[in-house]
Design a protein around this nucleic acid. Structure first.
Lengths: 138, 138
DNA sequence: TACTCGACTTGGACTCGATCCAAGTGCTGG
DNA sequence: CCAGCACTTGGATCGAGTCCAAGTCGAGTA
């Protein structure tokens, strides 16, 4: 996904070591990391990187649409690098782990006009909640 | 909704002034209040009530299934007294207003086993996002 | 290559929502 | 009416996230 780095450069980003590292961490594997986990992994590659920079960079990536913010509960926000393929989330109520899922059907179409109250509805998020195998075993 | 008070008594709750007040606030109108708003309104009825008690009581109501917690974004959790009729939420991306909606279809059924990854899926939340008429006009 | 400047980074202080805890209060069953 | 213990209190604490002034350094220019 150095396409990501390419796209960022294309958008006029100054390419700093910190930004490269954050982008690499997100690219690394498609898990849904918290900002803090991103910071921990980033520190492994670039020890001096600060939390503030990680937050800044994540925020920029989100507003560029390269990464999605997922706030499934009141714990830490998680960041989803899989922004370019629409999908929904399956969340473990105990440990907070998140998996991407692709339900059949189109929930947007399931909201009749009479239930839209004049809103311009543009998006729908579906969050399935349950208990993951690991937590169920424990 | 003194049925609520009845139900609580039936579940072995000690009926204190504080709990009655919190239940009354939630009953008052079916808006989605934050814990802080609940506290503010509770203080109007019972000036000595503490924030901790409001949090405790809301937490108890949630775990009894009398009230739903709604975390649509990273701001404060909101509490939804409409727990006995299943419904979903339509959120204004600009002002944060929330409306209850009742889509057709059953999104739980739309998640095939192959997409459940061993999770015991117990619940689904659907959040429609858009712009409300007021914000669209402004 | 060297210079320059403003975008970027830093880290520590701060905010805000929420939780914890030890001490005090007051329901409720007997 | 009493006593025991569930409940409340408020202040401390926590954890995620934001802010800010000061310092740093990427990259366009010469």
């Amino acid at each position: 996904m150095s396409d990501l780095l390419e796209r960022l450069r294309g958008r006029g980003w100054r390419m700093t070591a910190q930004r490269r590292v954050v982008a690499e961490v997100l690219d690394g594997d498609h898990v849904h990391l918290t900002a803090d986990e991103v910071h921990t992994r980033a520190v492994a590659k670039l020890p001096e990187i600060s939390r503030a920079t990680v937050y800044n960079t994540l925020g920029e990536l989100v507003s560029l649409g390269e990464v999605l913010e997922v706030a499934t509960d009141k714990r830490a926000k998680r960041y989803d690098p899989n922004a370019h393929r629409p999908h929904h989330h399956l969340v473990c109520a105990r440990c907070g782990a998140i998996r991407d899922v692709h339900p059949s059907g189109n929930p947007l179409a399931d909201l009749p006009d009479s239930e839209r109250f004049g809103f311009t509805v543009s998006d729908v998020e579906v969050t399935y909640r349950g208990v993951c195998p690991d937590c169920a075993a424990a």
